[in-house]
Each structure stands twice: as structure tokens, then as C-alpha cells.
Write a protein that binds this DNA or RNA. Sequence first.
DNA 1: TAGATTGTTAATCGATTAACAATC
DNA 2: TAGATTGTTAATCGATTAACAATC
Lengths: 208, 208
Amino acid sequence: MEKKISTAVIRRLPRYYRYLNDLLKVDIKRISSQELSERMGITASQIRQDLNCFGGFGQQGYGYNVEVLYKEIGKILGIDKRFTTIIIGAGNMGNALANYENFKKRGFDLIGIFDVSPDKVGKEIKGIKIMHIDSLSDFCAKNRVDIAILTVPAQDISEVAEKIASLGVKGIWNFSPQDLKLSHDVVVENVHLSDSLMVLGYKIAQRG
Amino acid sequence: MEKKISTAVIRRLPRYYRYLNDLLKVDIKRISSQELSERMGITASQIRQDLNCFGGFGQQGYGYNVEVLYKEIGKILGIDKRFTTIIIGAGNMGNALANYENFKKRGFDLIGIFDVSPDKVGKEIKGIKIMHIDSLSDFCAKNRVDIAILTVPAQDISEVAEKIASLGVKGIWNFSPQDLKLSHDVVVENVHLSDSLMVLGYKIAQRG
DNA sequence: TAGATTGTTAATCGATTAACAATC
DNA sequence: TAGATTGTTAATCGATTAACAATC
């Protein structure tokens, strides 16, 4: 019976990963929770608590070996694993994400792009032909698709999402402004850009 | 002495706003916290608690008037206010954001785009000329800029961010993978896409 | 060994949920 | 009025922080 790890902890992992990578770049070999805490702006206690959810990666009196910790967090995050992804919606956002070099490096392989627009279908992004969304089922039958990236501009997202979910996709990265309610067991990660911008606006207005 | 409203509450406001908008669209005039709770997947108690941070928008025995509540939350979020924005980094992501219709509707007016690349400077996106980043100071001196949207691909973001902050920008919407540490009092809202994708990967791997 | 710093337990703080009196 | 549902206080739950014994 493994203990449940809270979302708050998980969301901090990529942050740790980034900071450790920065340390590696400037050749820092070891770091204490205290020093890391100062750099990241969180408490040393929280860092130790977080890391100990996954194991004892440090050493008393020494701190943490940066490279070891970096690798361990990478392992926890599944950096070694590879995921196939498809993008649904070949608009500006879909295009931007298709061109994000970082994702491939992190184990996410783009294998298909879909759209409804006849202007787009047949064209290529990053050497990948844009297919019509009607061929989605076929494509998923022939290829294992782990993650669908939804960048369809608005409206009837739920239908598309439901379809994707039924095709055995394991996760959805949702850029549409809608929340998804799915009947299948699919992991959904939302990126609600408008929400984020509105929060920024609120905070600015508040600051006076 | 106004009571401090937690970030958790504020981050839920845009979500309420969206759901209320959906209700308006299908002509639902009133809603109880109970019914909204079922739609949104959060507790009725939390909804009432959240809303009462800002005022008593409901009516005992009746519930909430959808339109009134929608407008009130809009007011809280500052939807009536207008913010000028500039985009720094005219790459794919900058391009995608510049083309986002929603933002204008929500009160965010794009008034400038900047880049370093000679290929891009002089070209237009959405009728806005891309300027060289060296002209940023000049531009900010001549125009009030509320929000800077940072979509510079990587590296020395901190320098650019620090500069922007010194020019009197009130908020930064940060799409770079770095966290910003600024000496000025500027509101920063991060959109760490790689972090988000890694969390998705983690959850999928976990699900087994 | 002495000093440093972790791993871990206990204390605190804050956010969520439950309960219910107020009131439409 | 009776029924419904809010606004709000109190209880619970979970996450963060503090403290310190274990140990390198």
C-alpha cells in the first residue's frame, strides 16, 4: 500500500528538475536543502519533505548530490519513458506546440496532426502531414497513441475528447477553454490560457 | 482591513466565470450552489464560501441569478478594465498568442511585438509591426504598457525580464521555462508548458 | 570526533467541508 | 407560512513548517 502523493508535490517536481539542471550547467556538484530553498524560494523543510515522498536521496551532513538527484527526479517523472503524441487542431497553437523542440527531448514524440479545414489537410508541419480528423479512428487503430494534445479553438470539444478517449488514448493535454468530462479513464491536464491571463489581470488590478 | 483572499480562490474565479457563461448560453436564469457544484465537480460549500469572499451574491431560498453572478465575477476579475500588452518573442508561440481572439474580448489589447531576429523585424502579425527589441525602452516611454508576454525561447530571459520590469510594466505573463526573480514589484504569472506536460507524463506512467 | 545536514515526527497553519441559523 | 437555499460559523482535513534525533 503505497502512500498517496499529493498533486502539490507532483507539480513541484518539474521545478526541482529545472533547478537541478541549472545547477548541473554551472557545475555545482552538491547542494543542501537550505541552499536550494534560497534559490527556489520555498522552505528547506518542504524540499526535504517532498523528496522523501520518493526516497532518501540525500546524505546527512552532506546534502544532495546534484547529478544523482537530477537523475532520480527524472526517473520519477518518467523522463526515460517515451510517449507518442498527436495534435488535434492545426491552428496557431497546434503549430507552436508542434515546433516545440523541448518536448521531443523530454520523451514526447509527435506522430500525427489532425484538423478539419481543407486548407490545412495535406500540408505538413515539421515533416508530419496534417490529416483530416475523420481518419483519427483509423490512425489510432494502426498506431499506439499515448497523448492527444487538444488545440481546437472552441465549441464542441467534448465530442472530440470523448472520441479520443474511446480510442484508447491515455492522456489529454487540453488547451481548449472547456473542462472535459469523460466517461473513460483518461488523465487530463488542462492549460487554460484565458484563465491564467485573467488571474494576471486580477492581480494587477488588485495591486493598485 | 480587507481580508486576504487566497490564490486558490482567485484561480477558481475564471472557472466560475466560464461555467456561468455556459449557463447563460443555454438560457438558465438561476442556479443553486448545489446544482453548480454537480456541474463543476466541486462542493456546494466551497462555491458558497468562495463567492462570499467577495459579497453575498445569492438569495436564500432562491439560489443565484446567473446573469447577476456572471457580471459580478466579471467585475471582480476586472473584465471591464482594459490592459495594453506587448509580446516579446515573435516565434510560434508569440504568433499563436497574438492571434488569440479571446484576449481582445477580455480586455487585453496587443499594441506591440518585439523580436531580435532580422528576419522577423519589420514584418507584421495581426497588423502589428514587429519591432526590434532594442526599441523596447523607447516604445515603453511613449506608450503605457501594462503587460508583457514573454515567449522568448530560452536562455537569458532574466535580463529581458528585468529590463521590462524596470520600464514600468505591471505584469509579466511568462511562457519561458525559467522562473523570474525580479527586483521590481511586478506581478508574474507563469505558464510552464514543459512542466505541465511532464506532470501529464507522470500521471500516465503512474496510472499503470 | 565534531559539525553539518538529512529523514522524520510533531506542531501549525490554511483550505475545504459540514452544519445550521438566518432569511428569502 | 413552509420550503429552499444562502451566508457563516465550526469541524475536519491536508499541506506546510518547525524541531530534533539519526547519521554521514
